[in-house]
Amino acid sequence: MENYDIPVVSLGKHPIETGKYLIATNEIDRLCYIVSNWIGNKFPGAIIHGRPRLGKTRAISYLIKVLPDEIQQNIPMFHIRCRTYTSPRENSFFEDILAGVGHAAAELGRPSEKRVRLKHFFIEVAEKSKQNKLVLFIDDAQKLSAIQYDWLMDVYNELDEYGIVLTTILVGHDDLIDRRKKFIKNKDFQIVGRFMSDSYQFRGLNNIQDFEILLDQYDDGTEFPMRSSVSFTEFYYRDYFKKGFRLVNYANDFYDVFMQIQLEKGLPSEREIPMQYVTLTIEYIMKKFGYLGDNLSTLTKNQIKQAIINSGYIQSELILLDID
């Protein structure tokens, strides 16, 4: 069996072990194009929605990393997560945003002082970037209430007075579309126009091509350690990688097994496959069947099915089907 140098990585430190890595998918590429257009056209706000576990949060983290190069503008971008408030309070709201954008004095002062501090923070980062644009991604945005939209609108208006365009992108469940319909019915057109002027439905994996693009990233679009030129697949299948082992060669098998499981469990055949469970499936295959596990030279459909079952995909989809 051929051996060649593979960097030594401390136990548990590889991204496949930690889960701390970002990877492009077909859907993320589509989303990148859409969001680039929103920013380029100075949309004040828009919605990214989809059912749980599709990978929306990771997609936003990836976009923040690549969008400045994609649009060739060093636009400051922030990603915050909305909390559930039993009773929305201005003080907690602005404190959470300040903390989310990384402000060092998020907890100090009264609500009015926190609002002013946020405005000055945004103005300062916009000036430093030499751009007149800011992008704020709000995750779990289905939790926002009408009064919180009013507070966000105040921030938008104050920045607009300084010639700064704030694009607020709401990220959350499909409930966001229902909220938009409700605002329209109630004639809250300011909220709709300011924060919901367009929408994009984020989807999971739907076809073989989606699997091919994703698996190819593990084979050739990843690297660890940095500057090692060793992909994730090469690291875990070091004995067979130079002999041609590639996960992308099993794209048809991955898709077929997921479809087979959907049929067996009575799940809708057109139901998209959440990125979270595909990622967990791949990570299981790397660890269980790669060099540090069984060290297999090929994969079978039964092994792929074992990995899918281990990911929790079946239980999760059955629960969501009951909710639907």
Rank of each mutant, 00 (worst) to 15 (best):
Y200M: 01
R81H: 08
D5S: 11
F183L: 15
V155W: 07
L320I: 14
G312I: 01
E272S: 15
D150P: 00
I184C: 06
S316G: 11
L320H: 14
H120M: 11
E113Y: 02
G244C: 03
N295I: 00
Q201P: 00
Q131E: 14
M1D: 08
D216M: 08
E317P: 02
R117D: 00
N302Q: 14
T167L: 05
E212D: 06
E270T: 10
Y62T: 05
I48R: 06
Q201C: 07
H79R: 10
S92Y: 11
L63Q: 09
F195E: 04
D154F: 07
I304V: 03
G50D: 02
F122N: 09
Y255S: 09
K42N: 13
D220E: 13
P88L: 13
A59H: 07
C82F: 05
V248N: 03
Q262T: 02
K301I: 00
T279E: 12
A251Y: 03
S311I: 03
E223C: 12
F289R: 14
M275F: 11
P225C: 08
D175I: 05
K20D: 15
Y313V: 03
Q306P: 01
E95G: 10
F211C: 04
E107D: 11
D220R: 12
L205W: 03
I28A: 12
K128N: 09
R89V: 00
L280W: 04
E27I: 00
P88F: 12
A307L: 01
K243G: 15
G109H: 07
N157A: 09
T18P: 01
K185Q: 08
F241N: 08
K119R: 14
V9C: 10
Y291H: 13
Q72A: 14
A59L: 06
N207Q: 04
D160I: 02
E223K: 13
V278S: 09
Y240K: 13
Y284K: 13
G221I: 00
L170H: 12
V171L: 12
S92T: 09
K13I: 03
N302G: 09
I64Q: 15
T168R: 10
I308D: 03
A126S: 15
L136I: 07
T167R: 10
V66Q: 11
I273T: 10
S197Y: 05
E127S: 09
S10E: 15
N295T: 07
Q142N: 10
F258Q: 13
A251F: 00
E27V: 03
N252E: 15
R238Q: 14
I273R: 12
S145I: 00
I164L: 11
I34T: 13
G45Q: 06
R89N: 10
P268F: 05
L152S: 09
L263M: 12
I285H: 06
T233A: 06
S129Q: 05
R110V: 04
I304N: 02
K56I: 05
H14E: 05
L214F: 10
G102F: 04
T86G: 15
F43I: 06
K130N: 11
H173K: 14
T18D: 04
D29M: 09
I273N: 06
G12Q: 10
I138S: 14
L108V: 08
L176D: 01
I323H: 13
E90Q: 15
A146Q: 15
I177Q: 09
R110T: 12
I213C: 03
